[in-house]
């Protein structure tokens, strides 16, 4: 019944409208003239959220309304952010398994043991380019290759 309904004065409605127009101009101007870098999206979203809040509070009269309605839309918003954040948790870090070895742990341990058991010979102790002078090319590149493989395997 009417006595329960809050009548929002025209003045409020018009000032909210003016504020909305102002914020729209603000978002256009900031987007076109100022470079916020990574903050560009947050700034735009902040302005949009302010506008949205104005619409919800005054035009949709949530300020004067039953709290349950506000709760409903808040829960909705929370779950929208859950949807976005949890999905991004995957898409932002997608492929983070690539820096993990795909060989089994026991296999890794076996290889480590084999490496440790191998007595380093003169070939393997050579590291600087100067150490390779005088060695024939094939042997040298084979040694380098082998070293590279040994290095890379665990960090594949």
């Amino acid at each position: 019944m009417a006595h329960g309904h809050h009548i929002i004065p025209k003045k409020t409605l018009f000032s909210v409208f003016a504020a909305l127009i102002g914020l729209t101009l603000l978002t256009v101007i900031t987007a076109l003239t100022i470079d916020f870098g990574v903050l560009e999206i947050p700034v735009a979203l902040a302005i949009a959220s302010t506008k949205a809040l104005l619409v919800v509070i005054f035009f949709m009269a949530l300020k004067y309304d039953n709290r349950v309605n506000a709760l409903a839309i808040t829960v909705g918003l929370v779950f929208v952010s859950v949807f976005i954040i949890f999905t991004m948790l995957d898409t932002v870090f997608r492929g983070d398994l690539d820096n993990v070895s795909n060989i089994t742990i026991s296999q890794q341990e076996r290889e480590d043991e084999q490496l440790r058991a191998r007595e380093p010979d003169a070939d393997q102790l050579r590291v600087a380019p100067a150490d390779f002078v005088g060695v024939d090319d094939d042997e040298a590149s084979a040694a380098v290759d082998e070293a590279a493989t040994a290095d890379e395997a665990p960090a594949q």
Partner: peptide
């Protein structure tokens, strides 16, 4: 009726949220 409408708007919000998720994902990629 009003609570029903707000709940309906919540469903609308979630409907659009799918598109916003797609936007966010591809924007970030």
């Amino acid at each position: 009726a009003k609570l029903g409408m707000w709940l309906f708007l919540v469903t609308e919000l979630l409907l659009f949220s799918g598109m916003f998720v797609a936007y966010a994902v591809y924007m970030q990629w």
